[in-house]
């Protein structure tokens, strides 16, 4: 096995173009499991963890540019204010040891329907920046997930960062599992309320071949939330919103849960998320 550990992105892109089948490794929390269990034997490993520009984030006014290799621990320690939904989701990932190494670039690289970063990225309308020797492009998060563990990247590309709009209203993330830690979501839900545009974004995890949006639930919430007076979300709204989220999901029965359970629990958690996120939207307003 060849092992490359470039110190700069330019070197990494050059290596990825001459070795398009090289397997990238950053935090290693997905890749090493595959290697340890002999599920993968790549001829080349391309270690991105020494590239400092991938492990930084920067403030771009309305958005945060989050380096692909910033670990989850830093996301919830440093960006909980700007990206509350992603910070909440990050805090549910695995255990401290996993959160210290794993990050959003690896989550997107694996593109599991259960990846915890995906619902908040969908809900806030993020863009995934990828690069190759031929240049860079931004992939709309809505176009990024193509199927279970399949994403829209070309073999010679590397994810460099994710551009995520800062919260313009309340955000929430909720995840169903058997424990409070070390849980791959049975299903999950993220919501981002945009009080400036009077719109609502959603993301459903682990209840379809890819992470999904719940478009009808979004328009329902946008037309029924009381943007003028900020009055509370009613139980009827929670129920209707939850039903529309459940209807947008495409779950299957598997070892972690049945499709029926996933639909039911999605309806419950998404209704609650709407209520909580609306409450924090009002709190943000009154500040």
């Amino acid at each position: 096995m060849e092992f490359f550990r470039p110190a700069t992105l330019i070197d990494a892109l050059a290596l990825k173009s001459t070795h398009p089948t090289a397997l990238c490794i950053n935090g290693g929390t997905d890749v090493m499991v595959e290697l340890n269990f002999d599920r993968k034997r790549p001829e080349t490993l391309l270690d991105l963890s020494a590239i400092s520009e991938l492990s930084e984030w920067s403030d771009h006014g309305d958005s945060i540019l989050l380096g692909a290799g910033v670990p989850y621990t830093r996301i919830y320690q440093e960006l909980a204010e700007e990206l509350p939904g992603l910070a909440m989701a990050s805090r549910t990932v695995g255990s401290l040891q996993i959160r210290n190494k794993g990050g959003v670039g690896g989550n997107l690289g694996s593109a599991s329907p259960a990846g915890d970063a995906h619902p908040p990225l969908l809900a806030s309308g993020a863009a995934v920046n990828v690069a190759s020797v031929n240049g860079t492009r931004a992939i709309d998060i809505n176009e990024f997930f193509l199927g279970p563990k399949k994403n829209a990247m070309n073999p010679e590309e590397i994810i460099t960062s994710v551009l995520i709009p800062k919260a313009r209203g309340g955000q929430q993330y909720s995840k169903i599992g058997t424990r409070n830690a070390m849980v791959i979501a049975v299903c999950s839900f993220g919501i981002a309320i945009d009080a400036n545009n009077k719109s609502v974004g959603t993301g459903i995890g682990s209840a379809g071949p890819t992470p999904l949006r719940a478009h009808e639930a979004e328009s329902y919430a946008a037309t029924h939330l009381d943007w003028v007076n900020g009055s509370a979300v009613t139980p009827e709204m929670m129920k209707e919103f939850g039903a529309l989220v459940a209807a947008a999901s495409r779950p299957i029965d598997d070892v972690r849960g049945t499709a029926a359970y996933r639909r039911h629990s999605l309806a419950v958690i998404s209704g609650r998320c709407l209520k909580w996120a609306w409450t924090s939207t009002q709190d943000m307003r009154s500040k």
Partner: peptide, 12 residues
């Protein structure tokens, strides 16, 4: 940083 040694590649 606290990590699982089983999830770090030697080369890293």
């Amino acid at each position: 940083i606290l990590v699982c040694a089983c999830l770090v590649a030697a080369g890293q």
